[in-house]
Design a protein around this nucleic acid. Structure first.
Lengths: 223, 223
DNA sequence: CGTGTACTTGAGAATTGTCAAAGGCTGTGG
DNA sequence: CCACAGCCTTTGACAATTCTCAAGTACACG
């Protein structure tokens, strides 16, 4: 718990104080951690596992906005403004989270202005990430976006094997297609092409062995 | 200057202090306000006019990420981290800005934790805006995105006329198409269709009279 | 009023989405 | 340990959308 980067810079004493205010909880796959339209009452930090943030559109479709994994947090932008959450968050597998209530979070920020700055930086990072995603989603070919997603997954969800990086997929094909904003079938086809090109190798539905990350990187750059 | 929302909550005294630290400047159309890859030395607030934030991709293409207008600010996410800006900002017409140096900004935040919270809220708003943009860019038909853009423009750049809202376009067709992530020609065609449907009416290349914003709003909702 | 730039329109090519059916994986229960 | 049911995934064929290239037109500015 003391490894959470958000608090890495705090003194031991401050840290103890904060730790005593946190509460931990686990969720199972598909359990809702935060509902869309609800006013979040806490800041939630993912400690183990991963979760998806998604919006339900007026016509009932789901659109995934983020995949949260270890050390990502959410709920912070609503803690001061008291607005309703624009998205829901659901566990993609067993997830362990730590939470702070709104009151504790506010007190924390007032007592430790440094943390406010950390939050500004962290939000800035998220903005940068979204900007990058926007850029590729908005301006690029589907192949490029897929390459970028796979590279992202290698960083976050892969284990090294003798033959290359093996991604333990946090999402089904359907989820990935949704996240990329394309049809399930299109993703299948593109992955098949990558497999026939010898760039990757599918191991069942939940694992992807990436043999040539260099080729993917090259494609992701061609925007 | 005292109307900038960012400082609306400050006392007169604090405000005076801050105002003395700001410097103002104007830019002409196409002048670069912030270069991509440069380390911003200041927080910049748009006071008059509008500007585009864009990235140059490795193959030389430009992709517009934001249109900044009055009271929008940029540069804040780099002031603490010291990272290079991921995008450039250029004036779309005559622009007047106010800036703070990094040092003044940092001091400001340390002295006024409230402002830090305001920044967190503001960044949160930008994240929400990006998330919405992501959702429509990633998952929707082009018609829906165009409708959403026009509605956005009505709010920011329109003047009321007896016949409807007249948008003074901050961007050329090319710029709008770029922002939407579609081809210039596609945008032209879609606008022509909207015109033939009697939803809008083109006045030269820089003005659009929206006759039926209600129809656009209806379409923007159908995601 | 002319000239250059930006915009519109057209036609065909390429890409992606949709619908339908077949194939493969996973987990349960015998 | 095997068989089966259900669901997810893949593949195919076709339709719809968008892109590209090319030409013609309108606009804005000098």
């Amino acid at each position: 718990m003391h490894k959470i980067p958000l608090f890495a810079q705090l003194s031991r004493q401050d840290f103890e104080e904060i730790a005593s205010q946190m509460y931990s909880r686990t969720y199972q796959k598909d359990e809702i951690i935060l509902e869309q339209g609800q006013i979040p009452h806490a800041l939630t930090i993912i400690h183990k596992g991963s979760a998806k943030a998604y919006r339900i559109t007026p016509d009932g479709q789901e659109k995934i906005l983020y995949i949260f994994s270890k050390n990502d947090f959410f709920g912070e932008q609503y803690l001061f403004s008291g607005k309703k959450s624009a998205y829901a968050v659901a566990a993609l597998g067993p997830v362990q989270v730590c939470s702070f209530t709104k009151e504790h979070f506010q007190k924390l920020i007032y007592d430790h202005p440094m943390l406010a700055i950390y939050f500004i930086e962290e939000l800035g990072r998220r903005v940068v990430q979204l900007e990058r995603a926007m850029q590729s989603t908005g301006g690029s070919r589907v192949d490029v976006r897929i390459a970028a997603l796979l590279l992202d997954f290698i960083e976050k969800y892969a284990v090294n094997t003798p033959r290359g990086a093996e991604i333990i997929l946090p999402l089904s094909r359907e989820g990935m297609a949704n996240y990329l904003g394309i049809a399930r079938e299109t993703l299948s086809r593109k992955l098949s092409v990558l497999e026939s090109e010898g760039i990757l190798c599918s191991h069942g539905n939940k694992r992807l062995l990436v043999l040539r990350p260099d080729v993917l990187a090259k494609r992701a750059r061609e925007e």
